[in-house]
């Protein structure tokens, strides 16, 4: 390499640094990698490790602080007490239902946007689907409280919210409300990967299927869905994972009546019983990591 400096000059120390990195490429890699890896491992991974450890400490019943005495009691409570396992089962059911609902709503939307809408309209439509993601998580949970409000017999204002007034029916503040609000919140995360997957699907493939005599439904079942599996898996990571740990939405849209896994962890932590809360946290940690590994097998990580 020449020593000419075509654009601007260079001070001596800077030139020294340049030369150093040119000679030792690995040094450059280390300089790039160290800060982010250090941050994520020291702060995040270490915290997850400490969390597992924290579940093993006995709680001092008087001070409500964890002692240094080790015990498996918290783990046993968290994993065998039927009252708690029940909450976990309910949460998994909610997360799975939300995922299926998101899929059912997202499939036709993504298909229309990518294959039927006019090319000039596509970009606008997909942006329209994504924008609500940024409206604020809490704002959207709160919006559903306004939507679902049932009419009441007493109080200053007896009128219901939007659904009750416009459609004359509202599911009220219950389980349906939680599922509805969570589906609403995470729907864009399902539409986006499916849209991207459909976009990569060559139209000639669909034509070929039609030419071979397949009707649209058959093409959908035998060509489109199998090719969309990685995209659907990618979308489901968000819908499932985000629904599983949520405690704010159940609190807001049911006024605290329905408790899911997140609520259980939150209230245990505030009790305060930090070791038991840590033990409960192992539930979502295990479920999600298992789920992630399964979805990775389906090729989800290439479609994220």
């Amino acid at each position: 390499m020449s020593e000419r400096t075509p654009v601007g000059g260079h001070s001596a120390p800077l030139r020294g640094v340049n030369r150093l990195f040119r000679r030792h490429r690995r040094l450059g890699l280390a300089a790039l990698l160290t800060p982010p890896v250090f941050w994520l491992v020291v702060i995040y991974i270490a915290s997850l490790g400490l969390l597992i450890g924290a579940a093993m400490f006995r709680l001092d019943p008087r001070s409500h602080k964890p002692t240094t005495e080790l015990t498996t009691e918290n783990l046993r409570t968290a994993f065998t007490d039927w009252d708690f396992v029940n909450v976990v089962v309910r949460s998994v059911f909610v997360a799975a239902t939300v995922t299926v609902l998101c899929l059912v709503i997202a499939l036709p939307m993504a298909f229309y946007i990518s294959k039927i809408a006019k090319p000039w309209a596509r970009r606008g439509l997909i942006v329209a689907v994504l924008m609500p993601l940024w409206a604020g998580y809490l704002v959207k949970g709160y919006a559903w409280k306004a939507m679902l409000r049932p009419a009441s017999k007493f109080g200053i204002d007896k009128d219901g919210g939007f659904l009750a007034s416009v459609f004359g029916w509202t599911p009220g503040f219950g389980m349906v409300a939680v599922i509805l609000a969570l589906t609403y919140l995470w729907l864009p995360y399902m539409v986006l990967p499916i849209y991207a997957g459909l976009d990569r699907l060559p139209p000639s493939l669909l034509d070929a299927s039609g030419d071979l005599g397949a009707r649209p439904l058959r093409t959908f079942r035998s060509v489109i869905v199998p090719m969309l599996v990685p995209s659907i898996a990618a979308g489901s990571i968000f819908t499932f994972s985000l629904s599983l740990g949520d405690y704010i939405v159940p609190k807001v849209v049911t006024e605290g009546k329905i408790r899911l896994l997140g609520n259980l962890i939150e209230s245990t932590l505030l009790a305060p019983n930090q070791p038991l809360a840590a033990a409960f946290t192992l539930w979502p940690l295990m479920i999600i990591i298992t789920y992630l590994i399964g979805m990775k097998r389906l090729g989800a990580f290439e479609s994220l």
């Binding site: 702060i43 915290s47 969390l51 985000l242 962890i265 979502p284």
Partner: peptide, 12 residues
Amino acid sequence: LPGIVTAVALQN
């Protein structure tokens, strides 16, 4: 990972 896992881990 669900927010609550990150939250409890970091809080701890």
